[in-house]
Design a protein around this nucleic acid. Structure first.
Length: 269
DNA sequence: TTGAATGTTGAGGA
DNA sequence: CTCCTCAACATTCA
């Protein structure tokens, strides 16, 4: 479940390790992950030197001297750094080999993308994204919500509005701000919006500080420290709410599920 | 065997 | 135009 914290950490590590290196080999093991024909993809990146690695929402954006590589791990996966080529994981979709003999191995278990774009603005999936959730001030957050009528949870998950929040990291902030996921945006008070913004920053930054999710690996294969113990209500079905003791419930919210405390997060006042 | 799981897109309808 | 729902898609697990 790589969301903003894990992607932020991966992009940071990739930047530290890879900037300045030159790609001398591109191996695609599953062409369906590409947005261009395999030949053009390999040709475009072969010989490219890495200039920078950043992220936009859940996408890792790699700037090279020959255009941009955009990576999305979808529902889960890893990007691992290897010093030699002996112990690659069985399942892998893309391997980049650098002139110094190191490799980057990209694998995801479902729905991932490795896209090439000559210019970043050519790549619709990243160009359409809203600002990164952690780069947003409270005033900007308020401005984004102004005039909206939909449910708050689906707004937060919409990457075109705010980038980086997924179904894992959206649940605890809603609980901490005591907001039901189906609450309509135009019924939220100023205080609730401020509490939600605060809780989002705290949850996301807190996970980054702990090295990201304990179910995902970083560039070196190391797992993060943000585990079940850090979750307040997320995935804590039928356990007591830490605030009032009521049993946590799992509810359907559109096509996803959300764990809530039915007492603290009421739909009706 | 069935359905649900972290994501994204596109189509369609109110 | 906005917002919601549905289905589809590279898999894995209970």
């Amino acid at each position: 479940m790589p969301e903003l914290p894990e992607i932020t950490l991966l992009a940071r590590q990739m930047k530290d390790e890879l900037v300045g290196k030159t790609i001398v080999g591109v191996t695609v093991l599953q062409p369906k992950i590409l947005n261009v024909p395999q030949d053009s993809f390999c040709e475009a990146l072969n010989g490219a030197r890495l200039i920078d690695v950043r992220h936009h929402g859940k996408w890792i954006t790699v700037e090279t001297t020959q255009g941009w590589l955009m990576l999305s791990l979808g529902m889960g996966g890893e990007i691992l750094l290897f010093a030699d080529d002996r112990q690659f994981p069985e399942k892998r979709q893309l391997v980049l080999t650098f002139r110094d003999g190191t490799h980057i191995v990209v694998s995801f278990w479902w729905f991932g993308y490795a896209h090439y774009a000559e210019h970043p603005e050519d790549h619709a999936m990243t160009a359409k994204l809203g600002p990164n959730a952690l780069d947003l001030t409270l005033d900007e957050f308020r401005a984004l919500l102004r005039g909206r009528r939909g449910g708050i949870k689906s707004f937060l998950l919409n990457q075109g509005h705010i980038a980086g929040i997924g179904n894992v990291y959206v649940q605890d902030p809603l609980f901490r701000a005591r907001i039901h996921p189906l609450r309509k945006i135009d019924t939220l008070t100023d205080d609730e919006i401020a509490a939600l913004w605060r809780a989002l920053q705290d949850t996301l930054q807190g996970s980054i500080d702990l090295g990201g999710s304990a179910w995902e690996m970083d560039l070196y294969g190391k797992k993060g420290g943000w585990s079940e113990e850090q979750m307040v209500v997320a995935y804590q079905e039928s356990k007591p709410c830490p605030r009032c003791g009521t049993a946590v419930e799992k509810i359907r919210t559109g096509s996803t599920s959300t764990f809530i405390c039915p007492q603290c997060q009421r739909l009706e006042p």
